[in-house]
Write a protein that binds this DNA or RNA. Sequence first.
DNA 1: GGGTGTGAAGATTTTCACAGCA
DNA 2: TGCTGTGAAAATCTTCACACCC
Lengths: 211, 211
Amino acid sequence: MDLSNNTIERICKIFGHLDALEKKGVDFVSSRELAEEIGATEHTIRKDISLLGGPGYTRKGYEVRTFKKELGEKFLLTQKRNACIVGLGRLGTALLDYENFQEDGFEIVAGFDCNVNKIERIRTNIDVFPVGRLAEIVRARSIELGIIAVPAEAAQVVVDQLTEAGVKGVLNFSPVKVNVPANIVHLDMDFTNALRFIAARFIMKKNNDQK
Amino acid sequence: MDLSNNTIERICKIFGHLDALEKKGVDFVSSRELAEEIGATEHTIRKDISLLGGPGYTRKGYEVRTFKKELGEKFLLTQKRNACIVGLGRLGTALLDYENFQEDGFEIVAGFDCNVNKIERIRTNIDVFPVGRLAEIVRARSIELGIIAVPAEAAQVVVDQLTEAGVKGVLNFSPVKVNVPANIVHLDMDFTNALRFIAARFIMKKNNDQK
DNA sequence: GGGTGTGAAGATTTTCACAGCA
DNA sequence: TGCTGTGAAAATCTTCACACCC
C-alpha cells in the first residue's frame, strides 16, 4: 500500500467529515456528498477509498460509523497522541488552548518557552516548562508530535532538539523551512506563504478571465 | 499562461526564499540551492521558472534581486494588499500581531469580532470593529483578503459577508470547509487536519519501512 | 434504481537529457 | 566549465466507463 500525499490528505479530510457526520447522527454518506465537502470529484474519492480496499456495497453510500472506524484503525487516527508546543508567543499560547486538537485525538501535554518569566505568567491548564527541559519532558510524557511556534531564527534548533528527543512528527508554524531527518514526518504551515499563494492565484485568475 | 497550483506554491516559496537571500546580501542562487530550500528537485524548479519565461543565462545561477523583482511584478506579490481578520479569539488576536505579514506586503488593516466587550478589551495598534460593520469597513479600506478565525459554526456566514463585501481571497483557519463563489480564491488551513496528515503519513512510513 | 469498485484511458506533473549561453 | 531552458519521456494522478452489489 503506497498512497500519495494527495490521497492521504483527502482521507484525512474525509475522516474529519465523517466525524462531523457521526456527531450529527447521519448514518450514510455517498461518495458524491463526500466529494463535495472535501473539494474533489466523486471519482477521486471512490478511487482513494478503493486503494484502501474497503468494500462498501450498499445503495445508500458508506456507513458513516464503520467507515470512520475503519479509517481510524488503518491510520491509527483514533489513537490518542501526545503533542507539545514549543514557543509560547501569541501564536503558541493560542495553539495551547486550541480546543479542536483535544477533540480529535491529539492532546497537548506540554508547552515550552525559553523565557522563564513568560512561563510564569501564562494561564492555562497545560503544563509549561523552560525549553531546557524539552528532551526530558518529551521522553517522560511520550510526546510524538512537536508543534513549532518559535521565531524563524530559533526554528531549526528546536526541530533538532525535538527530533533528537524522539518525536515522530513536526508541525512547523515558523516562516522558515526546517530540515528534519528522513524518518521524521513534517509539515510547514507558513501563513505568509498562504497569503502569497492566494494573491498569486488571484492574479492568475484575473489574467485568465480577461482572455 | 496557466500554472498549476503546485507550481504557484513553489513560486511563492521561492519568492520568500529570495527575499531572505536578498536580506542576507546574497547575489546569486542556483536552481539546485533553491530546490533544496523549497523541498523539490532542481529539474522541477527550472521547469517552473521556464514556464514563467524568464531567461537567466549566467553560470552562477539566478540573480537574486532581479529575479525576485520579476516574480513580484508578475504576481503582484510586492504590491501592498490590505487584509482583515474576522474573529478575535486567541488565534485571531495572535494573527492580528503576526509581524511577518507586515514585512511581506500584507497589511492587516482591521479586525472584527461579534463580541463588543471583547473588542474593547483588545490591545493592539490595529483598529477593531464589531462584525456588524464588516461590509462597510471592507469597502472603505479596500480590503482584498479576509482571514477567518471564527468558530466552525460561524465560518460560512462570515465568508458570505466577506465575499458579498467584495474581498478577492479568503484564508480560512476555521476547521470546516467553506463554500466560496468561483471567482474568489480561498485556502483552508485546518490545524487538526495537519496533525492528522502527519500522523497518517507517519503510520504509512512505518508500514513501508517494515517491508 | 442507486450506489460502489476498479482496470484502463486520459490528463497532468515531474524528471530527464541535452542544447545553449556566459 | 557551470548552470540554465526546454522539448520529450516517464511517472503520477485523475477521470471515465462499466461491471457489480443491494
